[in-house]
Amino acid sequence: MKKKLITLIIITLFFGCKTDKKENEKLNIITTTTMITDLVKTIGGDYIKVEGLMGSGVDPHLYKASEGDVTKLVNADIIFYNGLHLEGKLVEVFEKMKSKTKTPIALAEEIDKSTLIGSDYFASNYDPHVWFNIAYFKQFAKKVTLVLSEKDPKNANNYKENEKQYLEKLDALQNKIKNIIETLPKEKRILVTAHDAFNYFGKSYDFEVVGLQGLSTATEAGVQDVQKLAAFIIEKDVKAIFVESSVPKRTIEALQAAVNSKGHNIKIGGTLYSDALGDDGTVEGTYIGMFEYNVNTIVSALK
């Protein structure tokens, strides 16, 4: 019933009368995840109006569009989302909105598929958590700049300057992260988290990554999953495991209890930001701050 209602809203709004945008009116942009919202705000600056559908701590795997969200999406000038089926419950909405005048832009679809990590779980057949490879996030930035410049050519130079400055900051982040991780011996680079959001991070920085719930939080971990991972932690002598801000911590606490019951002391090393950034106004509320915070938390706990 809800699907039919949302479809009707899309059709009614999409084909209804929409007033022409005034010459000096800012572009109205809707984004999905907090990482993309932060990126678009950084590139667009004061020249655009941005509203993210998902806030801090929101799990994009499980997010469903409300009637209000659909109205925002239909009235937007541009929609940026991750793609690769990360926002699985929004895919049908985006598909219905495709037309000659408006096609929601899936930033991850721009990446060379031959370089992505495969996944049988997602309909895209790829792991969608691509923002944990900074090189991929740079591609996001370039695509956002291109789209904004095409839609708003009078401010194109401003968007390109913002992109230039941001790419320089991402370069600096890459160097900083590399130096921090090099202080952690390779044999200690085993990252155990609530779900498999960090595979691209692991591939980039030579970590073995294990998620209790697999690639999507839509799949619950069972008793056998907990016991199997507990045995792995003991075998590898892992010192710490991590909860995630967008995933209930009960599964990791159950894992900790299972490990400790077998006489192996395991601590929770902290909370990592995986599918969502931290609160607005905090360091972790930006992509760069989140990435650096995560790495410092991981390295400090595993040393």
Score class of each variant (00 low, 15 high):
residue 8 L to D: 12
residue 246 S to K: 11
residue 119 S to C: 08
residue 247 V to S: 11
residue 225 D to E: 04
residue 175 N to A: 04
residue 51 E to H: 13
residue 5 L to E: 14
residue 24 N to R: 14
residue 231 A to D: 11
residue 296 N to W: 12
residue 135 A to V: 11
residue 122 F to E: 12
residue 257 A to D: 03
residue 2 K to H: 13
residue 261 S to V: 10
residue 244 E to H: 01
residue 215 L to S: 15
residue 291 F to I: 11
residue 142 K to I: 05
residue 76 A to S: 08
residue 265 N to S: 14
residue 163 E to N: 06
residue 226 V to H: 12
residue 218 A to I: 05
residue 168 E to D: 14
residue 280 D to Y: 12
residue 68 G to S: 14
residue 238 V to I: 07
residue 147 V to S: 11
residue 294 N to P: 10
residue 210 V to E: 07
residue 174 Q to C: 03
residue 269 G to A: 05
residue 130 V to Q: 03
residue 95 E to A: 08
residue 43 I to T: 00
residue 136 Y to H: 06
residue 83 G to Y: 14
residue 278 G to Q: 04
residue 220 E to P: 09
residue 249 K to T: 13
residue 117 I to R: 07
residue 144 V to M: 03
residue 157 N to S: 13
residue 78 I to T: 08
residue 244 E to V: 00
residue 156 A to I: 00
residue 46 D to C: 06
residue 222 G to F: 03
residue 204 S to F: 07
residue 5 L to K: 12
residue 138 K to N: 02
residue 12 T to C: 12
residue 248 P to R: 06
residue 2 K to N: 09
residue 92 E to D: 12
residue 157 N to M: 13
residue 45 G to K: 06
residue 232 F to H: 11
residue 274 S to R: 03
residue 217 T to S: 07
residue 117 I to G: 06
residue 46 D to L: 05
